[in-house]
Design a protein around this nucleic acid. Structure first.
Length: 581
RNA sequence: GGUUCCGUGGUGUAGGGGUUAACACGUCUGCCUGUCACGCAGAAGAUCGCGAGUUCAAAUCUCGUCGGAACCGCCA
């Protein structure tokens, strides 16, 4: 068995005879002397074959990615290579055994490989040999290990819940699995272990966690995979603060343990409404400021018809100030920003450039007083750029919220080594679904309303808030959770608010509601997006970088060519017929 | 469901209606005893994703299709 971590060798081992295993990363044949970079999981160590050695011919025949076993003596190098950990030493070879050969590899195995993601995904097992990807796998392991360590020390039990579940058509689309034993019936893969973890609380487990695979059949994004991992936590006899407190300490522990970063506690708490108002997002990135300001009142009596009409139609006018950036955006630059906000439904983007003489798209149509009022509200200085969106509230907030993030990125306002974390709390219980013409749960139907809002469940849904919270890190929703409803009366009211009939409730989650009737303790929890947490700690913006075998945007695996068609025999066993597509 | 972009030797890019499709890295051969992005000399390797159309002529233009990427919708 391979026992030595190759790069654990150092100058202190000089003279020692060693047996090493690994892959040929690189061979440099100087004619009378051969250098080989031997790679194992720990890194690179240099081997040297001299012409007087019996293994010289064997060393000559080595090619990239051959798997070899070598014997040799640790020696001090004539001149050290400061770029690698073992740069002071090398192994003078006595013996080389080829354990396996390798086809010529399709792309260079190095951190700065030029291969596209597409190529790397097809040969993911080769991609994993690259140090940067390997390091993320190590980091991911360290993170899950730290999580288990922390939660174990806090009396949590790690319990697995089923992968084959009942489909609950609320929320995300389910992945379905046909049942052979029960023909015509389907399992669904879990979108999260939500119901099971609550039933574990009913089952008296008190403190549960699981590093749980979850599945959602929705479209992919740079930070979204159809198959992902959640750190799922649930506790009994707790309130919101207990869970936030525990989670903070967990995050602090993981950051310290894995990247030696000190998280200062307690984290900032911000109400959902304030987050939307100030940052246009329920997951604000606080690494930079650039708040959104409401300048509607400046235009109460404006003669500028465009803005007047928007205000008359219950719209708002908001602005962000980009410090010292007026000269950084030409007409073309502004046009690009305009196109950007249009994606979020904004009709346009007005701008003002602050200087002795105000310029910009609406500089001419505004009165001097209006411009002065804007300058006062935004507290402007010379060369500030003011960007304004006027529209209905959701469009204004969403587009400016996205715009401030784009600007911060474009203008390099973000310190890449910084982490800004906060809690976003007091989420609305409901959001109005235009599609379904009714209020639907923002979180899920088992989320406890704020004590003072229980009565509003029926009477004032739009102003009903819940005991729900998200932990936001650098603009990512890293995790979210809530206190659950354990009270039967409140649960009934919730279903009523969602316009679910007794029959619908019974069909959708009868087993769950039945369970809640048998002495359910007050409970709540939270789920962490593990992949996103790894992304944050690894400082990458692509979720594929933190998953060993990820899927492409069309939810396929380029390596195994999955999904794929199946045998007619398999379909026949399941009594499934495929329609022409 | 929608918008935008990409597809050219093994890899990554350049190019672009016309005769030998360019460059870098890699590969192969020879030379080379201190390299570590080794060096030097030479060679092989591509019907430009696939299909149709326009044209005297398509890798280039058009349409379709397949694959990839980013985003909007979607993601309780």
């Amino acid at each position: 068995m391979k026992t030595i971590n190759n790069t654990s060798l150092s100058i202190n081992d000089e003279g020692k005879k060693v047996i090493l295993h690994g892959w040929v990363q690189k061979k440099r044949n100087l004619g009378g002397l051969i250098f080989i970079d031997l790679r194992d999981r720990s890194g690179i160590i240099q081997l040297v074959a001299t012409p007087d050695s019996s293994c010289y011919t064997m060393a000559e025949s080595l090619k990239n990615e051959y798997v070899i076993k070598v014997e040799g003596v640790i020696s001090k190098r004539q001149s050290a290579n400061k770029n690698i950990k073992t740069g002071e030493i090398e192994v003078i070879l006595d013996n080389v055994v080829i354990l396996n050969t390798s086809k010529e590899i399709p792309f260079e195995i190095s951190n700065d490989t030029t291969a596209l993601e597409e190529t790397r995904l097809k040969y993911r097992y080769l991609d994993l040999r690259r140090e940067s990807l390997k390091n993320i796998m190590v980091l991911r392991h360290n993170i899950t290990y730290a999580i288990r360590e922390f939660l174990n020390n806090d009396d949590f039990l790690e319990i697995e819940t089923p992968i084959l579940c009942k489909s609950t058509p609320e929320g995300a689309r389910d992945y379905l699995v046909p049942s052979r034993v029960n023909k015509g019936k389907f399992y669904a893969l879990p979108q999260s272990p939500q119901l099971f973890k609550q039933l574990l609380m009913v089952g008296g487990m008190e403190k549960y966690f699981q590093i749980a695979k979850c599945f959602r059949d929705e479209d992919l994004r740079a930070d979204r995979q159809p198959e992902f991992t959640q750190v799922d936590i649930e506790m009994s006899f707790v309130d919101e603060d207990d869970i936030m407190n525990l989670t903070e300490r967990l995050v602090q522990y993981v950051f310290k343990k894995t990247i030696n970063y000190d998280v200062k506690l307690p984290l900032l708490k911000m109400k959902y409404d304030d987050a939307i108002d100030l940052y246009g997002s329920d997951k604000p990135d606080l690494r930079f400021d650039m708040k959104i300001h409401d300048i509607s009142k400046v235009f109460e009596n404006t003669s500028f018809n465009l803005f007047k009409n928007i205000l008359d139609n219950n719209g708002i006018i908001n602005a962000i100030k980009v410090n010292n950036a007026a000269d950084k955006y030409s007409r073309k630059g502004i046009d690009e920003l305009t196109e950007y906000v249009k994606k979020y439904g904004a009709q346009g983007l007005a701008f003002l450039k602050i200087s002795d003489e105000i310029t910009g798209s609406i500089a001419k149509v505004l009165s001097e007083e209006e411009i002065n009022n804007i300058k006062n509200i935004l507290n402007t200085e010379n060369n500030d750029l003011i960007l304004i969106v006027a529209d209905k509230t959701t469009v204004v907030k969403q587009s400016l919220g996205a715009l401030r993030c784009k600007l911060a990125k474009d203008l390099n306002l973000i310190d890449k080594d910084d982490y800004k974390m906060l809690w976003v709390t007091d989420f609305p219980s409901f959001e109005y679904s235009e599609e379904e013409n009714r209020f639907v749960s923002m979180h899920h139907p088992f989320t406890m309303p704020k004590d003072e809002d229980v009565d509003k469940l029926i009477t004032d849904k739009a102003n009903c808030y819940s005991k729900a919270y998200d932990i936001v890190i650098n603009g990512y929703e890293a995790g979210g959770g809530s206190i659950r409803i354990h009270d039967q009366d409140i649960q009934r009211k919730m279903f009523e608010a969602l316009e679910l009939s007794d029959k619908q409730v019974e069909e959708k989650f009868g087993f769950f509601v039945e369970g809640l009737k048998y002495g359910t303790p007050p409970h709540g929890g939270l789920a962490f997006g593990l992949d996103r947490l790894v992304m944050l700690l690894a400082k990458t913006e692509n979720i594929k970088d933190v998953i060993a075998f990820p899927k492409t945007q069309s939810a396929s695996d380029l390596m195994s060519e999955c999904p794929n068609v199946v045998d007619d025999k398999q379909l026949e066993e399941l009594k499934i017929k495929i329609d022409k597509i």
